[in-house]
Computed example of a mutant assay.
Amino acid sequence: MNWKIKKTTGAFLRTALIMMFAAAALTACSPKEKADSKSGGPVSQAQNADGDLVIPVSEISEKAKFYPVSVDGTQMEVLAVKAPDGTIRTAFNTCQICYGSGRGFYKQEGDQLVCQNCGNRFSMDLVEVESGGCNPWPIFDEDKTVTDESITIPSDFFKESRQIFANWKTAY
């Protein structure tokens, strides 16, 4: 009788271990979102084969979403957020003043973005509206294509802008 209990317990433990390893493997291999951006928030892999960044409008909410972009070895990041007036705003996740430090990127705290270099707080409704000063580097309408379904920022624009990320201390 003791032998049967040990065999059953052993089989149960083996099955449980296999299920745990399978769950861990599935979790580790799940694509799309991760939380390793500079912002500490969710990021999506949205760069297409041509190097354009394609952001689905359906992903954008009042919580800033961060999109990594790689251009010729330079790591960059774009943030997209729905402003209080319902419009979708985009900007580079780097500060127009602090970018040279490599730490001039933003994290969201409540309804504000906070520069991780100088601590300046920036309201979501000013993203892509204000230019110059300690605020996220805006990506204006002329630098992107917006449809009801997506926002596309072309690879050529990233190539032109990559110098602002030359010192960026990347998290990936």
Rank of each mutant, 00 (worst) to 15 (best):
K6P: 03
A83D: 06
D148L: 07
A23K: 04
K6V: 05
R89T: 09
R89S: 02
K7A: 13
P56S: 10
D143C: 04
I153H: 04
F140C: 06
W168Y: 07
F140Q: 07
V81W: 09
F157W: 08
N167P: 01
G132K: 15
A22E: 08
G51I: 03
K65Y: 11
A35Q: 13
E33C: 09
I88W: 00
A22S: 09
K65R: 06
G73A: 10
V78H: 03
S123F: 10
T74I: 07
G119R: 02
Q108H: 15
N120W: 12
A166P: 06
L53D: 08
E77F: 01
G132D: 11
K159T: 12
N167M: 12
Q45P: 00
C115K: 05
A49E: 15
E109P: 04
D148Q: 14
G133L: 11
T9K: 14
G73Y: 11
I5C: 01
E128K: 01
G10L: 05
A22T: 11
G119W: 06
Q96C: 14
S30R: 08
C115S: 11
L53Q: 09
D156E: 12
G102P: 11
A91S: 14
Q75R: 00
F12S: 11
G102V: 04
C134R: 11
F158D: 02
F165H: 05
A28K: 04
L79Y: 15
P138V: 08
V127W: 11
D50S: 09
P136M: 15
L113C: 12
W137E: 10
I139V: 12
F12H: 04
F92W: 13
A171Q: 15
Q108G: 13
V129F: 09
K7T: 09
W137L: 13
T87C: 10
D72Y: 00
M76A: 00
D52G: 01
E62F: 04
D143V: 01
D125F: 02
D141F: 06
Y106M: 07
K65F: 13
D141I: 00
T87R: 03
D148I: 03
K82E: 15
D143E: 10
F92K: 08
C115Y: 12
G86M: 09
C29V: 05
A11Y: 10
F157K: 14
S150D: 12
W168S: 01
N2P: 00
N48Y: 12
N93Y: 07
N167C: 03
F122D: 07
G104E: 03
T15Q: 14
V127D: 05
E160T: 08
K169L: 04
R14N: 06
T27M: 06
E109W: 02
M1L: 13
A23I: 05
Q116R: 09
P154E: 07
N167T: 10
I60A: 00
